[in-house]
Write a protein that binds this DNA or RNA. Structure first.
Lengths: 217, 217
DNA sequence: CTAATAGTGTCTTTTAGACAATATCGG
DNA sequence: CCGATATTGTCTAAAAGACACTATTAG
């Protein structure tokens, strides 16, 4: 006898645009927004099924995603039928793969549309995870463009962790951590010239031996 | 059409006995040792199925386990058939529920019998998780008896994290963290008398704001 | 008295944290 | 010259880290 188990998979896709975190939602036939999800296809893993769904439904290319991680598995039972959902976190640089369809929406994390409670829980948990990782790893590398100013890095840190930090201490700490390359280029920002930085080992998640907890000012 | 998905669940049950970490393994009909596991039963969650399996197969009572946590979900595809396994970590004080059956074995983590590779991966990951949690939480509370000496606490810390620490600095740090109660009792150990401690909020996992990384000596 | 273990305090080094002035450039 | 932004350094406070002796008790 086959187990009457409904197995699905979904994903929280984060992007960082204009000092805000965004996630991608899709609208189903009932005009409700929800996380991109799919049934787990026969003979496939949740991950394979999800990749297929994202490719065909919202046109996501492999190069659009910089980082993937399993979040957790949640289950429920309703009317004798069990549902299992494997959730993932994806991090993307601000690309525009999401455009071109009314079924796909990019929402700032602070102003999400009404969602099923189960999706709200998943997003909340995904945010927690991202927040924690920002403190002890180079995870921001996957949300920022390859080259960025120190201030942009700091702003993304503040957005993800939710706390403001002192400019000088942040810069000092990042230098001590030795994870950045200072580019020879500069960028014109308003009326000043600012240096550009990149992560030394882009596309790899480096863990710090101690968490980075800069203080506010 | 039902998805031909095999969904199972397994668990790494840790115990701390005599300065060593142990895990519980069971032996199946083919006389191979493996983590306790079960198929996910129809209309049930992986967790419910697992609890039932542990209760009926190895006589585990609710009071034997102090802490439970989902570890991760791993999947594989073989010959067109997909398998999904939701893994858990359980922490138990050194009880003796595991005795009385040849099918159940308690193995020190350093001397495990030959296991399926997939189980080895799960155990490795579980150890990593436990190790990390020991640094920033009161997780050791769930492996130790309710009352313990400072030295026992330190030894369990060293076992789980894999690094020796200085007695005086460890004691100072634990006092600063303010998570222990000093009992009025003492215990006779060899030729000296030693104080007993307990965790203030036993049965709750408290997270430290900063990780606890004492240095060796 | 001796052997074994528990228990404790201080100094040094490192890291975190607070804080303000100067340089550059476009207009 | 002015306004906006980028950049830089020092001092202080707190925490981590290294380190050695005394007290107790069973035998």
């Amino acid at each position: 006898m086959e187990s009457p188990l409904t197995a699905i998979s979904n994903v929280v896709i984060f992007q960082y645009i204009g000092k805000q975190l965004y996630i991608t939602l899709v609208r189903d036939d009932s005009h409700k927004w929800s996380l991109p999800s799919t049934r787990i296809l026969p003979g496939q893993t949740s991950f394979m099924s999800l990749e297929h769904e994202l490719r065909t439904t919202i046109g996501l290319k492999a190069s659009d995603i910089q980082y993937k991680e399993q979040l957790y598995t949640q289950e429920s039972v309703r009317g004798g039928r069990a549902t299992l959902c494997v959730s993932y976190i994806y991090l993307s640089r601000g690309t525009n793969w999401h455009k071109g369809s009314e079924q796909i929406g990019l929402f700032p994390i602070r102003r999400l549309p009404k969602l099923a409670a189960i999706n709200g829980t998943t997003i909340h948990y995904a945010l927690e995870r991202l927040h924690a990782k920002a403190l002890y790893s180079t995870v921001l590398s996957f949300l920022l463009p390859k080259e960025f100013t120190m201030l942009t890095l700091q702003e993304s840190f503040e957005t993800v962790t939710g706390k403001p930090v002192d400019r000088r201490n942040f810069r000092k700490k990042m230098n001590d951590l030795d994870v950045l390359n200072k580019q020879n280029k500069t960028k014109q920002v308003h009326n000043a010239r600012t240096h550009l930085y990149s992560f030394k080992d882009a596309d790899k998640l480096l863990l710090y031996s101690k968490p980075f907890l800069p203080s506010a000012t």
